[in-house]
Amino acid sequence: MSSAKVLLGARIKQIRRAKGLSQGELSERIEITENYLSRIEVGTSCPSLPTLEKVAAALDVSLKDLFDFEPFREETREVETLLKSAGTEKKRLVLSIAKLILRGE
């Protein structure tokens, strides 16, 4: 899986949730299946440009906004900073918790 596809999918999901839309609502608006939207959001499918244009329009954002990955970079830097100062046991605990949380997505 390319990191760009994963970031794009995560960004679409982030904006969709911020707009208060379910996957079903967005997929209906852009005339794709909910399953396909789910695959886009987890980064296993790469949408075409026409689909991305529909997503942007349905979410009332620009195409450029879909590719604004800076919020993820900021979060990653913050996590890295916190982990640098943590001891080995705390790092292991964080890893265990992260695995539990991320498996549920």
Rank of each mutant, 00 (worst) to 15 (best):
A58M: 07
P47C: 06
L59Q: 06
F67R: 11
L66P: 00
S48Y: 04
G20H: 09
D68H: 14
R73F: 14
V55Q: 05
K54Q: 08
I97Q: 03
F67D: 04
E28R: 11
E70H: 12
I15W: 00
L37K: 08
L52I: 03
K84E: 08
S3M: 12
F72M: 01
S85L: 08
A57G: 05
G104I: 15
V94E: 00
K13L: 03
K84W: 02
L8H: 12
T33F: 03
R11M: 04
S2D: 15
E74Q: 14
P50F: 08
R16I: 09
I101M: 04
R92T: 01
D65W: 10
E34V: 09
L83V: 00
I97C: 01
I12A: 02
K5C: 05
A10T: 01
E74Y: 08
L82P: 00
T76A: 08
G20F: 03
C46P: 05
T44N: 12
E28Y: 13
G20K: 02
E80K: 07
L100A: 12
L49I: 15
K5F: 02
E53P: 10
V79E: 01
A4C: 05
L95Q: 09
K54V: 01
S22L: 06
K84D: 07
P71S: 07
V6M: 04
Q14A: 13
V55E: 01
L95E: 15
P71G: 05
L66E: 00
Q23W: 05
E105H: 10
R29P: 06
